[in-house]
Amino acid sequence: GPREVTMKKGDILTLLNSTNKDWWKVEVNDRQGFVPAAYVKKLDSGTGKELVLALYDYQ
Rank of each mutant, 00 (worst) to 15 (best):
L16N: 02
K21M: 08
A38I: 10
L15Y: 01
G1R: 13
G46C: 12
Y58Q: 02
Q32D: 06
W23T: 01
A54N: 01
K42V: 11
A38S: 15
N20D: 13
T19F: 09
A37I: 04
T47R: 10
L13N: 00
R31S: 11
V5R: 02
Q59G: 12
P36K: 04
K42Q: 08
Y56D: 07
G48A: 10
Y58K: 01
V35S: 01
G10W: 03
W24D: 00
R3F: 15
T6C: 14
E4Q: 14
Q32F: 09
D30H: 10
V5Y: 07
V52Q: 00
E4Y: 15
L43Q: 04
N29V: 05
D22S: 10
W24F: 06
M7W: 06
N17V: 08
K42Y: 08
L15P: 00
V35T: 01
S45R: 09
K25L: 15
S18V: 05
M7G: 01
E4P: 15
Q32S: 09
N17H: 06
K41Q: 14
Y56T: 10
Y58S: 01
D44C: 15
Q32T: 13
T14A: 08
D44Q: 12
L51M: 11
K25M: 15
D57L: 03
Q32L: 07
K49M: 11
Q59N: 14
A54C: 08
V52H: 02
K41T: 11
L43K: 02
M7S: 01
W23I: 03
R3M: 15
D22K: 12
V5W: 12
A38T: 10
D11M: 11
F34C: 14
N20L: 07
F34P: 02
D44R: 10
L51I: 09
F34N: 03
A37H: 03
W23C: 09
N29L: 07
D57T: 05
V35Q: 01
E27L: 10
Y58M: 02
L16S: 02
V52W: 05
I12S: 02
G10P: 01
T47I: 11
L15K: 00
D22A: 08
E4S: 14
D22P: 01
K9D: 02
R31G: 11
L55T: 04
V28S: 12
Y39A: 13
G48R: 06
K41W: 06
A37S: 13
T6D: 08
D30I: 03
L43V: 10
K21S: 10
L15A: 01
Q32M: 10
P2Q: 14
A38H: 13
D44S: 11
L53T: 06
K41I: 14
N20I: 05
V28I: 15
E4C: 15
G33I: 15
M7D: 01
T47D: 14
E50C: 13
K42W: 09
L53K: 07
P36T: 04
K9V: 10
N17E: 15
K21E: 09
G46P: 13
A37K: 05
W24A: 02
W24V: 05
G48W: 05
Y58E: 01
T6G: 08
T6H: 13
E50H: 10
R31Q: 13
K49C: 09
D44F: 11
D11N: 04
F34A: 02
D30C: 10
K8H: 08
S18C: 11
K49L: 12
F34R: 03
S45L: 13
P2W: 14
L53E: 13
W24S: 01
G46T: 12
L16F: 03
V28P: 00
Q32R: 09
S18N: 08
K41G: 05
L15N: 00
T6V: 14
F34D: 04
L55N: 02
D44N: 11
Y39S: 13
A37F: 03
W24N: 00
M7T: 02
N29Y: 07
R31L: 12
T14Y: 09
V40H: 00
D57V: 02
N20A: 06
L13K: 00
D44E: 14
N17M: 07
E4N: 14
N20K: 05
D30G: 15
L51A: 06
S18I: 06
L51G: 02
S18H: 08
D57N: 07
E50V: 13
V26H: 00
M7F: 13
L15M: 02
D11P: 00
Y56Q: 13
I12G: 00
L16Y: 03
Y39P: 02
G33P: 02
R31A: 12
K8F: 07
K49Q: 12
Y39Q: 05
A38W: 12
Y39D: 04
L13M: 10
T6E: 09
V35A: 02
P36H: 04
V40A: 02
T14C: 09
V35F: 02
F34S: 03
W24Q: 01
T47L: 11
L15V: 06
S18M: 09
M7P: 00
Q59H: 13
K49D: 09
R3N: 14
G1Y: 13
W23R: 02
K49W: 08
G46Q: 12
A38Y: 09
T6S: 14
E50K: 10
T47W: 09
G1E: 12
S45P: 08
A37G: 03
A54Q: 01
S18F: 05
R31D: 06
D57R: 02
G48M: 08
A54R: 00
T47S: 12
D57C: 05
L15D: 01
D44Y: 11
L43G: 02
T14K: 10
K21Q: 09
W24P: 00
L55Q: 04
I12L: 07
Y58G: 01
T19N: 12
D44L: 11
L13H: 03
V28R: 08
G1C: 15
P36F: 05
F34T: 04
K8Q: 08
V26F: 01
L53H: 03
A54D: 00
G48Q: 09
V26Q: 00
M7Q: 01
T19Q: 10
Y56L: 10
A37Q: 04
K25N: 06
T14P: 08
I12F: 04
N29S: 08
S18L: 04
E50A: 11
K49V: 14
T47Y: 11
K41R: 10
L43T: 04
K25S: 07
G48S: 09
W23M: 04
K49P: 15
A38N: 12
V28H: 13
T47C: 13
D30A: 09
